[in-house]
Write a protein that binds this DNA or RNA. Structure first.
Lengths: 210, 210
DNA sequence: GGGCATCATTGATCCCCGTCAAACGCGGGC
DNA sequence: GCCCGCGTTTGACGGGGATCAATGATGCCC
């Protein structure tokens, strides 16, 4: 656990910890500035500060239960910008994160609000998936979302493991794997490699996601 | 579907539609003002505008699938303040909503950000519940949350139906009912009436929610 | 206050997905 | 290139919660 000025950011230990430090060492696109330590600008906003841009790989935002069960609430993909929108545990995957910009004073909320609203909208859609959709629908919705966020191409890269996908969709890795196989057998997708899929029948997949 | 200036607010038909109109007619705590139609203050923030305070009952924020499956992403209880944090469908339950305040210009994001961050945090916790907890844990977590938000008293009011609870927890009404019965039989709670519960063994309930 | 529509509870059954287990194959290291 | 480890796939099985159905309770309306 590490703290940078006002924002409280909890990082997972070991290798991932150094990755963020590297990110801080990397030349930022814009000068980096921090809140004066202890400043209280927003009742809840004080916990949110820096902006980050994912260079490659994926950033996982997750929560844990006491017994280790994990729920990934969001992935941030390469090229996407995110803030520490809440006092959530962020797990940085690989070293592909760079400090993007850090607005000062009153501007921060103007910068952060769109990110927070975007995150909120996605979370609401994600809740619908977890609360009301079955395994096939969940995986289909996930693949459609990933495809859209990568430009809508046929070829989609999955910069995360099956376990991550399962923890994102509220499924086990076995179920994720079985659904992939069923979609492949139906000719809806192809699996050129473990980390990449090709969407063959885009309409079918879209319909499956409801 | 109805639109007030910039914010896009979808309401359910009939009785609940008139309820918001009544809320607008009711004397607001502060003068009410709107964005000029078509103004674009924030990329995403434009969809968010007014602040509301719940007077009684509960406000349900939900999304629907094409076949009617519903997922309630949040309840806003009496006394709580909320904004239209995203372009989500809001369903106003009863007439217990009043226009609270409507900040102007640059202040809006400063007002709205804390609400959005609060909503985001709750959504992330909710995702953990829906993705990784079983029926008993979900109901226990729901009751603990409701109790905390009502001041931590033994007596907790449930200003929503079993169907609403089910659609919030990703369960059927039958399962919700069965879990209530099991908790009652175990002596963890009492059910003085349909819409109110008494928490007898608070620690046990808390442990059940993990 | 009685009647009735609606909501909630309880029961019986089914099935989707989790669990446990084993085999497979990809990728990294030498 | 070969080996080994770990992530992934596939299989067998069981259980938790959904579904279908019927009964019971609540509160609304006249």
């Amino acid at each position: 656990m590490q703290t940078y000025a006002a924002p409280r950011i909890a990082l997972s230990p070991s290798s991932t910890q150094s990755s963020l430090l590297e990110a801080f060492d990397a030349p930022p696109l814009q000068p980096v500035s921090f809140f004066p330590a202890g400043s209280e600008i927003y009742a809840q906003g004080e916990k949110a500060g820096a902006f980050y841009q994912v260079e490659f790989g994926a950033v996982r935002v997750y929560r844990l239960l006491a017994d280790g069960r994990r729920q990934i609430s969001a992935f941030h993909l390469a090229g996407e910008t995110f803030g520490f929108e809440a006092d959530t545990t962020h797990h940085i995957n690989a070293t592909g994160v760079r400090v993007f910009r850090f607005a000062t004073g009153a501007d921060i909320s103007r910068q952060l609000l769109p990110l927070a609203l975007k995150g909120l909208t996605r979370a609401q859609e994600h809740l619908l998936v977890l609360g009301r959709q079955n395994a096939i629908e969940r995986v289909a919705a996930f693949l459609v979302d990933m495809a859209e966020r990568q430009g809508g191409l046929r070829q989609v890269e999955l910069p995360m493991s099956r376990m991550d996908i399962g923890d994102y969709l509220g499924l086990t890795i076995e179920t994720v794997s079985r659904v992939f196989t069923r979609l492949k057998d139906k000719g809806v997708i192809r699996l050129p490699s473990l980390r990449s899929i090709e969407i063959v029948k885009h309409d079918t997949l879209h319909n499956m996601s409801e």
